[in-house]
Write a protein that binds this DNA or RNA. Structure first.
Lengths: 234, 234
DNA sequence: CCAAAAGTGTTATCGCTACACCCATGA
DNA sequence: TCATGGGTGTAGCGATAACACTTTTGG
């Protein structure tokens, strides 16, 4: 691509603004949360919004989303999937803006807390999401649906856990995603039958006196499974 | 939206070109085909491409895709789903163009033949797809994958059949999508168990001496099913 | 010793798969 | 009458769902 060809081709095309918006889910060992921030520019300055940015000339659309995520959380190498294109003509009264939305999953810990703070961002529980600007409430709704659907054919939720985790923790995660209770025995049976977990000899005693065994992913088997797109219906 | 606000907000944003590309599948009672056309503009003039267009200021992104589909086939009210955003910085040497791809399913008949012809478009079997411009081969690959995945949780393929159809026809469609043979008895059993088909008393004798009963969708039940997102694994 | 969470097995049911034979009819 | 595609039933298997009691240990 060079400047010359840009001016030669596509004369009839109409330039528009391209944005990315990231619906970021975080899991704090209990609850699934959503990262929102107070928008810094007009229109709708200081109203709640999912995090986003315009796509700059020097980056691809997906890179733009990755950059935004890193700016706000300091995290990179995060699972992120594209969600949908929001391209209604009047969706943004500020200009003709087409937004490509993404959703990402992160594990809440210390790392991101500082950066989230300095950006005036905040985590919200799924049941207390405030009104958002533009079509962002729709984006969130769509993300949740996609997240739930996607966990059915990819064991996606694992991204949200620490390296070592217990089976009850993993179960809480799925319960948070699906918003319903699961049977302990069946859950354990199913997850173990996939042979993607490696049992450690340590226990985590933070949530019970007896303590629960810690597990770790067998990432090799995990990769294989993702590739084969195995069903994973709970 | 008004011209004034456009100039006031988002000064820092960089305008880019937005395109839509439609991966259009057609079914001719036998085989699944793909609609391609010879591109009319430089660069890559006269090379094969999926059908597409730039998004104009007067239309939303999805409307743009619907318009393009209608321009090339004369068909409207077609099932169409968004596929993916292709936003690599150098994907199009002609300019910085972000493309939102869609995929659509149509039933091949007389209606669209004329328009397809006048646009120098052509139907290609899935096994004889020529090299395409830019990342269009990737789009096609992604569409097929999405089509196959999506038929698992929505009985999507029905869009490709005439109003009245036989069970063997429906089976051929699924065989074309999955590119493998299915068991007659099991297919019939499964599809009938969903209670979304209404058996008619007419027979279609075009493919056998005995004739096969025609069926029609019970669209009410069908809608319910789509809403509930029932599993539909063959 | 007891409260609170972790861990474990069995049974009944359902859905999937695999498989072979009769039916209707036009040529 | 026969070739061709349409139509049907069953048995075995594996996965799922429902369900209750024992274990561990810190307080």
């Amino acid at each position: 691509m060079n400047t010359h060809s840009k001016t030669v081709y596509y004369q009839e095309a109409f330039p528009i603004l391209m944005a990315v918006d990231c619906v970021i889910f975080g899991f704090d060992r209990q609850e699934l949360k959503l990262l929102l921030f107070k928008r810094k520019i007009e229109p709708f300055k200081n109203e709640w919004s999912v995090i986003g940015s315009f796509v700059s000339p020097t980056e691809g659309v997906k890179e733009s989303a990755i950059r935004v995520l890193e700016e706000y959380t300091g995290l990179s190498n995060i699972f992120m999937d594209s969600l949908n294109c929001y391209g209604e003509i009047d969706r943004d009264p500020g200009a003709r803006v087409v937004s490509q939305a993404f959703f990402a999953l992160i594990r809440l810990g210390e790392e991101e807390a500082q950066m989230v703070e300095t950006h005036q961002a905040n985590w919200f529980g799924l049941n207390s999401i405030p009104p958002l600007i533009l079509d962002h409430n729709q984006m969130v709704k769509d993300s949740l649906e996609k997240l739930r659907r996607k966990t059915r054919y990819q064991p996606i939720g694992f991204e949200l856990l620490p390296e070592k985790f217990t089976i009850p923790q993993l179960q809480s995660l799925y319960e948070a995603i699906y918003q319903r209770q699961l049977d302990r025995r069946n859950f354990r049976k199913k997850i173990l039958s996939m042979n993607i977990l490696e049992k450690l000899s340590e226990k985590d005693k933070s949530t019970s006196k007896k303590g629960a065994y810690l597990y770790r992913f067998d990432s090799k088997r995990y990769e294989e499974m993702v590739k084969r797109g195995i069903d994973f219906v709970l």
